[in-house]
Computed example of a mutant assay.
Amino acid sequence: MSEAAPTPDGQYGERAAKALTESMTVLDDQTFSELQDEEFLVVSPTGTYRVDAIAETCDCPDALHRAPDEGCKHRLRVAFARGERPIPGWAIRSAIDKDLGQHLSADPRIATADGRTEVFEP
């Protein structure tokens, strides 16, 4: 498990940690015109995968064959990059991929100590 993964109660998933720390680029229909609204390409060293945020699907092998409850790391990366799912406030900022959300108009969000969220700035 990645350095960003541990929580005080140990409940943070390995896929979510990978979604935050591994090198991935998320592209939307503004950057890649072949995509529909709410579709994303996630480009990683292991491949390029299409994520549909509305249908909550991804065409990666993990999503197709294991169908994890929390979603594959590509779906989670899209959610973190768009700010839909806040980064836990306890996450080690230096472990988070510096390119998170770089090609999207929405901003990643991070949880604050008072229960709110703010724009994540690495």
Score class of each variant (00 low, 15 high):
R82L: 11
D52Y: 02
L20M: 03
C60R: 02
T21L: 00
D62M: 09
F120G: 12
A4L: 00
Q30K: 15
E3G: 02
P61A: 09
A19K: 04
L35P: 08
K18G: 00
G89R: 05
S94L: 01
E14P: 02
P45K: 02
P61I: 09
S94E: 13
E3K: 11
G101P: 06
Q102R: 14
R85A: 06
Q102C: 02
E70V: 13
M1S: 14
M24N: 10
I87T: 10
E22Y: 04
L35M: 07
A95E: 13
E34S: 15
V78M: 09
P68C: 00
T117K: 07
R50Q: 12
A19W: 03
W90S: 15
S44F: 00
V119Y: 01
D62P: 01
E38S: 14
H74R: 08
E56Q: 14
E22K: 05
A67I: 03
A113P: 01
T25S: 05
S94I: 00
F120E: 12
R85K: 11
A17C: 01
V78K: 09
V51D: 05
V119S: 10
T7P: 00
S44G: 13
L20I: 00
D9K: 11
T25W: 00
Q36D: 15
P61C: 06
C72G: 07
R77S: 11
A19R: 02
H74T: 08
V119F: 01
H74N: 11
E118C: 10
R77Q: 10
R85V: 03
V42S: 08
V26I: 08
T25N: 04
A81Y: 02
R66A: 12
D107E: 10
G71L: 06
D29S: 14
A16K: 12
H74W: 07
S23N: 14
A63G: 01
F120M: 09
K18I: 04
R85Y: 00
C58N: 10
F120K: 11
P61F: 01
D62I: 15
R82S: 14
P122K: 04
W90Q: 12
L76V: 04
S23H: 12
L76E: 04
D59F: 03
E84S: 12
F80P: 14
K73W: 03
S105P: 01
S23M: 12
T57E: 11
S105A: 10
V78P: 05
L100A: 10
R82C: 11
P122Y: 05
D62H: 09
D37K: 15
L104R: 08
T31L: 08
A55C: 00
E38N: 15
S33W: 12
L27C: 03
R50I: 06
M24A: 15
A53S: 15
D114E: 11
H74I: 07
T48E: 13
E56C: 07
E14G: 01
R109H: 02
A111P: 02
G10W: 05
A16E: 15
F80S: 09
